[in-house]
Design a protein around this nucleic acid. Structure first.
Length: 561
RNA sequence: GGGCUUGUAGCUCAGGGGAUAGAGCAACCGCCUUCUAAGCGGUUGGUCGCAGGUUCGAAUCCUGCCAAGCCCGCCA
């Protein structure tokens, strides 16, 4: 019921199927197998409301020219059912369907009835899906790459939720391994330096100013009590304090970015619980692990990888990959039917062996999807902003939110497909002008709210749809707007299934555009009460579709601008 | 050297077997006594990186080449 357009489409598809079968039964057409035809909205409006390519696809089997096949099919299509008003054969053999214009009027009551729920569907059927994203090292601040991951991951999760999946957002905390050791050394050096001691800073350490800030906080709290401590213990204490502080900061920034996680999962916990060890011994029992040069290797080459991968170093410590296998095993053990990871493109080489490891551990690797996102290049004043984490010189997510605002930042990250190399133009993102697509969309929402607000001041409320003559909406701008509103459920569903949040960003922009167009050609507050009522319903349904889109994108929905 | 991603209008990008290839920005011309001009309408602008192949039909699929970014560690 929720997806009117799909419903109408399915009706037409059924009608086509029947016509084709009838034609075969009558001996006009010959075919063994019905080809996988499509029914789509043609690019050109002159080509009707929907069009199918079935006649062209049947040429081989039927051994007849496409236009003749189309003749047979159209002759057997029953007009007047499934909203089909007129059918035409065009071009090389397309069958174009022209529907009774009234078919779109069903969309408005549905949108208003469902309100907050309009656009949602149940294609996910409650299946459990996990989206893991950002998962940054808790040793520093979030950078532009993390920010893109946050916006994409959160929007993908929102789409999946709206499409009927039971979604969990998860942050994997890399609180183990080399970078933590490095973090400890950096903290220790800064600690001793801050207390006036002349000690060298580690070559590979974290040079960022934020580390010094952390140390100042520690000194403010505990003074010099760690100075005379044994170095191992001292680092442990500093790491504990530092990690906690960093995690709180990361969580706070992400929340200000509109991102909230359901689960924060610690890598360290997998080592402590013995899960890593257990996973490795299971893989060893299955013969996927061997020893060479003192290290343990996973036979990832058996699964299409170009070489094997170390899981336990010759010094006895497990690698990140070992923990990651245990982690993914844990995800599946928690009952997720679908596991989605957002990784930077620089991790692409990791995908095949991760899938291989999942297979080796006895799970279905097809249940893991890794969304790789290309790197972000930041432009400011027309120039690339060079960034380096090691030197501590980079624009943080916090800086970004402060400079361009949450809404613009989120929209800019989501408006491009994940695999496009994103050029982020800071000047454009923060410009409060027509160039900025975020304002364009929000402005449409504010305009609608303004109309409805003024109507209400004059004692006019949006009427219940039952008594309204929606069929008074005959202008092309009106019909186009209704159609666009009707597209939302499909946009959400396919955006979710294909993990393509940029489609929703585009949709919101298009919907706003169609509305602005309508606004300029049709006045809502007209004298004619019946037309006014119909347009108020239309405008309110537009508001619903726009608002729901904005919320899924994590953007605010201003009622005045 | 091998792998992954990308190459479409001046710029940033959609489209990913079908009809005349789209949007935003930029440029140019119009539209505010009327519900928000952060808006609308119009014009200009394309050898879809190059070359082959498959197909009734290729920007889209295949092969080769060219260019850009990233990766190829007992880092993550």
């Amino acid at each position: 019921m929720a997806n009117i357009i799909d419903q109408v489409k399915q009706g037409i598809i059924a009608a086509i199927n029947k016509a084709v079968e009838d034609s075969r039964a009558a001996g006009e057409l010959e075919y063994q197998e019905l080809p996988n035809f499509i029914l789509e909205v043609p690019r050109e409006k002159a080509h009707g409301d929907f069009a199918t390519n079935i006649a062209m696809l049947l040429t081989k089997q039927a051994k007849k020219p496409p236009r003749q096949i189309a003749e047979f099919i159209t002759a057997r299509l029953v007009k007047g059912t499934n909203w089909i008003a007129r059918v035409e054969i065009a071009g090389p053999g397309f069958i174009n369907f022209y529907l009774d214009p009234a078919w779109v009027y069903q969309i408005l009551p549905v949108a208003r009835e469902l309100d907050e729920q309009y656009g949602q569907s149940n294609v996910g059927q409650g299946r459990k899906v996990q989206v893991e994203f950002v998962s940054a090292n808790p040793t520093g601040l979030l950078h532009m790459g993390n920010a893109r991951g946050a916006a994409l991951g959160d929007t993908i999760a929102a789409l999946l939720g709206a499409a009927g999946f039971a979604v969990a957002r998860e942050f994997y905390i890399n609180d183990a391994g080399n970078q933590i050791e490095n973090f400890g050394k950096s903290l220790e050096a800064r600690y001793l330096q801050q207390l006036g001691m002349d000690v060298p800073f580690p070559e590979e350490g974290y040079h960022g100013q934020d580390i010094i800030e952390t140390i100042k906080n520690i000194i403010a709290k505990d003074g010099d009590k760690y100075v005379n401590m044994e170095t191992g213990l001292r680092r442990e204490m500093l790491i504990k304090f530092g990690l906690e502080e960093k995690l709180i900061a990361i969580r706070r920034v992400l929340e200000s970015f509109g991102v909230k996680y359901d689960i924060w999962f610690s890598e360290q916990s997998l080592h402590e619980s013995g899960a890593v060890e257990q996973t490795l011994s299971q893989l060893r029992d299955k013969g996927y692990i061997y020893e060479q040069e003192g290290a343990l290797w996973f036979k990832s080459s058996l699964f299409g990888d170009d070489k094997d991968e170390v899981v336990v170093r010759s010094n006895g410590t497990p690698t990140y990959f070992a923990a990651d296998i245990a982690y993914h095993k844990d995800k599946f053990d928690r009952g997720f039917d679908w596991v989605i990871n957002l990784w930077g493109a620089d991790h692409h080489g990791h995908v095949d062996r991760m899938k291989g490891a999942i297979k080796a551990a006895g799970y279905d690797p097809d249940k893991l999807d890794v969304v790789l996102m290309q790197l972000v290049r930041l432009f400011k004043g027309g120039e690339i902003v060079r960034m380096s984490k090691r030197s501590g010189e980079f624009v943080t997510l916090e800086d970004l939110i402060e400079e361009v605002g949450k809404d613009a930042a989120r929209y800019f990250f989501v408006m491009r497909s994940a695999d496009s190399h994103l050029d982020f133009d800071m000047d454009l993102a923060k410009s409060q002008s027509a160039d900025n697509p975020v304002y364009y969309i929000q402005y449409a929402h504010a305009r609608i709210c303004s109309i409805l607000r003024q109507a209400e001041e004059n004692g006019l409320k949006v009427p219940p749809v039952e008594g309204v003559k929606i069929n008074l909406l005959k202008e092309s701008a009106e019909l186009e707007l209704i159609r666009k509103i009707g597209d939302l459920p499909e946009e959400i569903a396919s955006g979710a299934i294909n993990l393509e949040p940029h489609r929703l960003a585009r949709y919101a922009h298009e919907l706003a555009g169609v509305f602005h167009s309508f606004y300029n050609s049709c006045r809502v507050m007209v004298e004619d009460a019946e037309l006014r009522d119909a347009r108020m319903v239309l405008v309110d349904a537009t508001r619903i579709a726009l608002r729901n889109s904005l919320l899924l994108l994590g953007l605010s929905t201003p009622e005045r601008m």
